[in-house]
Every structure is written in C-alpha cells, then in structure tokens.
Design a protein around this nucleic acid. Structure first.
Length: 356
RNA sequence: GACGGAGAAAUAGGG
C-alpha cells in the first residue's frame, strides 16, 4: 500500500493523474487495499484540478470501505471546497467531521481562515482566529468550535500569514499591522512568506517606503528576498509612477541571483504602458520570450490595453492572433479590453466580431 | 509489540 501510494502520489504531482488512477486500479486488482493516505492524496489531487465531484466519489468510497477519514482528509477536502468558494458545502463537511468525532487542528482552522478571507468575509476569518485563542464567543463561528474543550489552539505562521494577507487585501492595514505585532509577541517568527505578505500589503496601501524598510529588515533577519518580494516592490513602485526606482530594484534583483518571471515582466509591461511608454513596453514584451519567459494571457491583455489606449487597435488585434498561434487562450478580460477599445474609437463592427 | 517509511494550509501581475 505504501509503495503504490507513494508512486501514485508522485505521478499526481507531475500531472500524470490518469496514470496514477490506473495504478490505483491495478493496486486494488492485486488485492492491495488503499488506506487513508491513498484516499487523501486522491482527494487532494482532484480538488486541486477543480474536479470536486470526483473528490467526493473517493471520499464516499473510502467511507464505504470503512476507511474513516482523519483530520488530514477532512482538511484537504475542506480546502478544496473553500478554494472554490463553496462555503456552505464546506460547512456541511465540517459538521460531518464533528459528527465523526474528528478534532480540527491548526491546519483546519488556517484553511477556514484563508477560505473566508478569499470569499471576502474577513470578519468571520478574524472571529475564527480570535476564537482559537480566547474564550470569547462569536455566534457565527461557533459551528467551528463544537465539542472543543481547549481554547488554546495556537495559530502558527501559516495562520498569521493567511489572516494578515486577508486583512491587507480588505484594506484593513491597521489590523494587519496589529496582527503582525501579535505574531511577534506570541513568539512566532515570521518567515519569508510572512515578510512577503507584509511587504505586498504595505505596497498596496501606498506605503512603498515602509515596504522598503521591511525589505531591509527582512535581509537583516537572514531571510532572502525571492521573486514574490521583488515583484511586490516593483509593482508598488510602478503603481506610484516611480519607474526609476522600480528598474533599480529589478537590477538588484537580477544582481542577487533572483530571476524575474512572467509576473515580474507583466508588471513592468503594464507599468510602462500606464506611464505612456508603450513602445518600451512592447520592446520588453518581445524580448521576454527570448529570455525564456513567454508572455501569458495576463501579459497579452496588459499589452493590448496599452496599445488600445494609444488607439493602436489593429496592433492589439494582431496580438490576439499571435496568442492563438502560441496557443495561449484569451480569457473574458482579454475580450472585454479589446471590445472596450474598439467601441471607444467607433470600430463597432470589429467589436461585434470579437463579441461573437 | 515497538519504532520508522507515503497524505492537508499561507505571499506577487491585466479593465
């Protein structure tokens, strides 16, 4: 069972899900019984590719086979529902878990906090966090704390990160900052991701200078800024029109051995367009592929928007054709951008064609 | 019988 599960897990990790499924079938045919690890791995895999119904089948099969899900299985499945924004299904599953006398752990609560944040309900997320630590009651979140005897479920760095990020994205920067301090007071050491979340939050709050201070402190603390760190800073600088500093950060980044990726390049393409430097943006757009970093749908859309704003609709539409050639699928935002620009300059028949 | 071996969570870009 261990061997089959390990191999199937590796196959899933390299996106060979079909091969993994064949292996599980073979395993069963040979009389080897899948266990919790096998099922949890399968549920996780299907959740991550968005096939939650398939995940449900494995979940039901495991219970039918009297292999009862443990906290990892439930948490994996909860994560799947929450990532798809299916809060009420997640709540039902949570009830199932409670009924099975399976106690949630810090990962379960972190998943719930992250899920509620991403569903736009930071208040509930904050209440879950508070309720983990204190006896204070919050009627909305009591469903997550049934049969819980101890109130001392210690949040860890994942928990803090999830909530700090959620608070920042909800523009509750004060509260995010307080939580950062609470994390330090609780003796929880920030890791790279925590610093990155804070830096990004500060950038988005328009406090890029403060973000740069945190950047320095991060390095002093022995953490290495990565592509997320640099990309957050670069985007923050570009959005406040500080192109020179943004390019300085970019060259520091490269100098420190951190390779810009498609996100970094897209930020710069977009920043240049928004600064009216569409020519330069286009140059970068064409050179990025030479550097082994092909543009994706977001890069294309940013570039098209830049061209459209200059009234270069034909060039923008050429890019749409180029996308097709590179088999990069446009999304609804790509079309929205193009159609808007066509309408703006009165090319209604072009717009009509795009709409079809 | 013990121990060990496989499964879950958080951060950056486009109107």
């Amino acid at each position: 069972t261990v061997t089959y599960t390990k191999v199937a897990s590796l196959l899933c990790r390299v996106n060979k899900v079909d091969k993994a499924l064949l292996l599980v079938k073979e395993m069963k045919e040979n009389g080897v019984v899948p266990n919790m690890f096998t099922y949890t791995m399968l549920i996780d895999t299907f959740c991550k590719v968005g096939l939650i119904e398939q995940a449900r089948k494995w979940f039901d099969e495991m219970i039918a086979g009297r292999c009862f899900p443990d906290v990892v299985t439930y948490t994996t499945f909860l994560h799947g529902y929450l990532k798809m924004g299916k809060i009420s299904e997640a709540n039902d599953l949570f009830e199932h878990m409670v009924a099975a006398d399976c106690a949630p752990n810090v990962v379960t609560y972190t998943v719930l906090i992250d899920g509620h944040c991403k569903a736009g309900d930071v208040q509930t997320a904050t209440q879950i966090y508070s309720r983990m630590r204190e006896k204070e009651l919050f009627p909305n979140v009591e469903i997550y704390f049934q049969k819980i005897k101890s109130y001392g479920i210690e949040p860890n760095v994942f928990t803090y990160c999830a909530l700090i990020d959620g608070l920042c994205k909800a523009k509750k920067h004060e509260e995010a900052h307080k939580l950062w301090k609470a994390m330090l007071e609780a003796g929880c050491k920030p890791n790279d991701i925590a610093y990155n979340a804070l830096i990004d939050g500060l950038c988005k709050a328009g406090q890029v200078g403060e973000a740069q201070n945190v950047f320095l402190k991060m390095s002093e603390d022995g953490h290495t800024p990565d592509v997320y760190t640099y990309s957050s800073l670069i985007d923050g600088l570009l959005k406040e029109n500080n192109l020179d500093t943004a390019f300085n950060v970019l060259s520091n980044m490269v100098h420190n051995g951190c390779t810009p990726n498609v996100v970094t390049y897209t930020e710069i393409v977009d920043g240049l367009c928004k600064a009216g430097k569409t020519e330069e943006a286009y140059k970068l757009f064409t050179t990025m592929q030479e550097k082994g970093c092909p543009p994706d749908v977001i890069t294309y859309t940013a570039m098209m928007d830049g061209l459209g704003k200059e009234g270069k609709i034909d060039q923008a539409i050429e890019l749409l054709e180029l996308m097709a050639k590179k088999s990069c699928a446009p999304d609804s935002l790509t079309y929205t951008v193009l159609i808007n620009h066509c309408c703006r300059v009165g090319k209604l028949s072009e717009a009509q064609k795009l709409l079809q």
